[in-house]
Amino acid sequence: MMRDARRLVDALRNPASVEMLRGSEWTDLISMARAESLIGALAHRIDHAKVPDRIRMVLQDAVEAHDLARLQALWEADCARRALADYPGKIVLMKGTAYVAADLAAGRGRSIGDLDIMVERKDLPVVENALLDAGWEWVKPDPYDDQYYREHMHELPPLIHRERDRMIDVHHTILPLTAGPTPDAGEILASAVALADGLYVMAPADMVLHSVAHLFADGDLAGGLRNLWDINLLLREKAEASASFWTELDERARLHGLADELARALRLAAALYDTPVLPSLAGKATFTDNFYVRRLLARDGYGRETRKLTRLAFYIRSHWLRMPPLMLARHLWIKWRKDGKPSG
């Protein structure tokens, strides 16, 4: 029984390493990869390795499931494009949908849930109304949640399409307004790159930094191995494509106030996935890097979350990150009161 996700990370970094796996170790690898939403990436990555028959079928299933998810994500983006055809501003695709729309390595086998787009903050009401007209509806009828989203988050409350049952998150920046760093949303929109159909994706450095912001700020490092795998692939592909990439990344990280987060992400990616990184940007390893690695690998061969204490520490930390302390207290109090009330 595997006690942490080390073998999964090994397999992604070095596909030939899976040929050392014996018997039920394969089952452990699959359960961990599914739990970390990395099964599609793993399937593509070890495509050429020698794999037992049943595991080969499991991986083929994952490839096909993700192929369809890719189609559906692109279709959902196209639905939003049509709904917003009269909107003159830029519509920037984010995260998984952006990776597949721009045909990046990070999109191969990546699971994609909601559609995330970014528009200019002042245009949120226009965009919201156009989506409501085209069949999207509010998910949360709760006025507190609604007000909380609008005042403190970096997005509209989620909308769901009444026929296709798919969610859209409309963002106006890449981090909650209550988080420490304040990325320059205007700059992100200004530098966004047009795709053939008129939608946009972020410029390379901004795309990496959004992924970095997502890794640290969104939750308690849950799904961290997958987010870090995105970062690894983006860094490799973008650095290969442009000689000036590292310089741009450095400048944009400073501009958005994400230099420390970037440095940490670079060190973690290098440590776990052997990502080639610019040493001057990555900075010196710190003692707490080990703590992050322990947290990222906290998954056993049954697919269970392990290291509850490490997770708890990150959970509390993640709430401090996202909200100033007084607001956190208010949020937890209101949540507690609501959850405590008998419903119905």
Binding site: G23, W26, T27
Partner: peptide
């Protein structure tokens, strides 16, 4: 029994 200890799915009762 499944061969080699390899399966399609894991169920967890916890």
């Amino acid at each position: 029994a499944p061969g080699e200890g390899q399966v399609d799915f894991t169920v967890r009762l916890e």
